[in-house]
Design a protein around this nucleic acid. Structure first.
Length: 580
DNA sequence: GCCGTTTTCGGCCCGACTGTTTTCAGTCG
């Protein structure tokens, strides 16, 4: 029998909740299953043991019905109720959620009234004007749906960087056993660590392209693999991800990797500079005054052409080729601690102790907890009383997690007028304050700019959180005058967070250069809502590297004493600040 | 469906926004 863990059980409870919301007028029934899922996730004791003892329903949020379903899931791996719900709807029904502004209620109506169960059917019905006639729908909704379908489709063939890396790694691993392949490396925008990517590029070093290609086809490394020219082959994986293979002789592998990594702009800049030394990158390798030059590694290509090596992340344009020395970019192991960590006090999935223990296991010297503020009620923002309780809990764990040092913070909402969602007295009790926008995203540019500038005037603010507010592949960032924001942040010593959540990667690396020039310092933060999400520090590091940041420009590369002294000094200054 | 209790049904987290309404429902964070 399949042993189900609490996370899998929670996923299935969520699925039930979604189905219920499609058909059930009472929204609280769906919410009850949602709550049960949260309750299961938050369990400190083993779910299977708890079920065995018959005390499941003693957990708040789990009642008679949900308890029985959980037991059934644990015993059989599925639930009759869930199977019945699944049978009532087409399998692709939830793909409709990818259309913005379409929620489960509207999807439920579309299915029951028009039998719509996927994007194609939705598009056909909207084009025929059938949507506008439904109750609760209208002409505008119909238009919005059509625009939304376009939006969803555009994003179909684009995917987030971590997905790209996972797919690319898995394809590369499959190449390992093929005779004749001497080396294989991931290239393209994935190697450049672009936040959203469109295809996978892999460079293969081999002396017998045809033989290798045949072996790859035979093994079914990807679907529909076929050569598109002498040196390139193309296939698909996971349904809709295009994989390009670039073949090169081992002696030309460096040049091939360089060219396949791009960007086009960088390669052009490379060639312009190399030409001055008589060198040229060609499809068939590096050439010096028309004669072939061996470049088994990428470093060889840079060196022979007389150019400074540029890390792949920095190859969006040619600017770093002008540097005399290779840029020293920050690396994950440079980080000594981090901030912006949530716990079960607000919307995190792990307790204070779990998050602290995980930070210690990662060998951090320090970590700063920051749950939401009261206005973020949907995320369980902390009242002043709850904040006090959290402080007491943190204090009770300090010895347990030593030598890890714990800082007490908040991720406080920047309210509509730019004020911070706690009073000064409360803020003064914290070691640090991350100020973030979580509401009223669609303000006009001027208003949003003033709002952020106002927040920067609060002397207790230490960091600006996920400044642009973008959600990759789903939401554009806020409009604001970034120049003015960076200027003021720099002048007031407020750091800007580089939020490493792969859905955000915010600050956008494109802003980093300008912010740095205006005196802004950065902190790489995970915005972790679970232990696993400390992993976002790696993705955050990529953003910093893409922005060209070195360890000294990153706050959390500093030792704990420096951090503590900085917070203390800043708080002291805030207390003394004139705040009329 | 769950919870709590003012023991057997009423409330459940909420505010902004938008479109469809003519006072509200659905979506989003």
């Amino acid at each position: 029998m399949i042993a189900m863990d609490k996370w899998q059980v929670a996923r299935l409870l969520e699925e039930i909740s979604r189905y219920i919301e499609l058909s059930e007028p009472n929204p609280f029934k769906a919410r009850a299953f949602e709550r049960a899922a949260r309750a299961v996730e938050g369990l400190e004791t083993d779910l299977a043991k708890l079920a065995k003892s018959g005390e499941l329903t003693k957990t708040s949020g789990i009642g008679k019905a949900t308890g029985a379903i959980i037991e059934e899931l644990l015993q059989t791996g599925t639930s009759k109720y869930l199977e019945e719900l699944r049978a009532q709807y087409p399998p692709g029904i939830f793909e409709l959620l990818r259309v913005p502004k379409l929620g489960l209620k509207k999807i439920g109506i579309l299915h029951s009234e028009l039998g719509i169960g996927n994007l194609d059917e939705l598009e056909a019905a909207a084009r025929e004007g059938k949507l506008a006639k439904l109750k609760g729908f209208g002409a505008k909704t119909q238009e919005m749906v059509l625009a939304g379908i376009k939006f969803a489709r555009q994003r179909e063939s684009r995917f987030l960087l971590p997905t790209g890396i996972e797919v690319a790694e898995s394809v590369r691993e499959q190449l390992a056993g093929i005779a004749g392949i001497e080396d294989a490396e991931i290239a393209g925008s994935i190697r450049r660590r672009l936040e959203v990517v469109q295809n996978v590029n892999i460079v293969i070093a081999t002396k017998s392209t045809e033989k290798v290609l045949a072996a790859m086809q035979k093994r079914g490394i990807v679907e529909g693999l076929e050569s598109i020219d002498e040196r390139t082959a193309k296939g698909m994986t996971r349904g809709d991800i295009v994989v390009l293979f670039h073949f090169a002789a081992p002696d030309d592998f460096g040049t091939a990797l360089l060219r396949a990594t791009g960007s086009t702009e960088f390669i052009d800049a490379f060639n312009t500079r190399a030409a001055k030394n008589g060198y040229e990158l060609r499809e068939d390798g590096l050439h010096h005054n028309g004669r072939h030059v061996k470049t088994p590694t990428e470093e060889d290509a840079f060196e022979k052409a007389g150019l400074t090596f540029v890390d792949p992340e920095r190859r969006e344009d040619g600017s770093d080729l002008a540097l005399k020395k290779r840029r020293k970019l920050v690396e994950l192991h440079d980080l000594r601690g981090t901030f912006h960590v949530h716990t079960t006090f607000s919307d995190g999935r792990n307790s204070v102790l779990e998050m602290l223990s995980a930070a210690r296991e990662r060998d951090f010297d320090y970590v700063g907890l920051s749950d939401h503020s009261p206005t973020a009620s949907y995320a369980g923002g902390l009242s002043v009383e709850r904040l006090k309780e959290q402080h007491a809990e943190i204090d009770s764990h300090r010895e347990t997690v030593a030598p890890l040092r714990v800082f007490r913070g908040t991720e406080a909402d920047i309210l509509g007028d730019g004020s911070i969602d706690y009073d000064d007295k409360t803020l003064a009790k914290l070691d640090f304050v991350i100020a973030s926008v979580h509401s009223k995203f669609n303000m006009p540019k001027d208003e949003m700019t003033e709002r952020i500038l106002n927040a920067l005037d609060n002397p207790y603010v230490t960091f600006l959180g996920h400044l642009t507010g973008r959600l990759l592949l789903s939401r554009e960032g806020y409009t604001m005058d970034y120049e003015r924001v960076f200027e003021k942040a720099g002048a007031r010593g407020v750091m800007i967070e580089i939020n490493g959540n792969p859905n955000r990667l915010d600050l956008d690396w494109r802003h980093v250069k300008r912010a740095l020039a205006l005196g802004v310092r950065f902190s790489i933060n995970p915005d972790a809502h679970s232990i696993r999400e400390y992993g976002a520090l790696l993705t955050g590091t990529w953003v910093a590297r893409k922005g060209g940041l070195s360890p000294k420009e990153i706050f959390n590369t500093q030792p704990v004493d420096a951090i503590e002294a900085y917070f203390a000094a800043r708080k002291e200054a805030a207390r003394n600040a004139d705040r009329r």
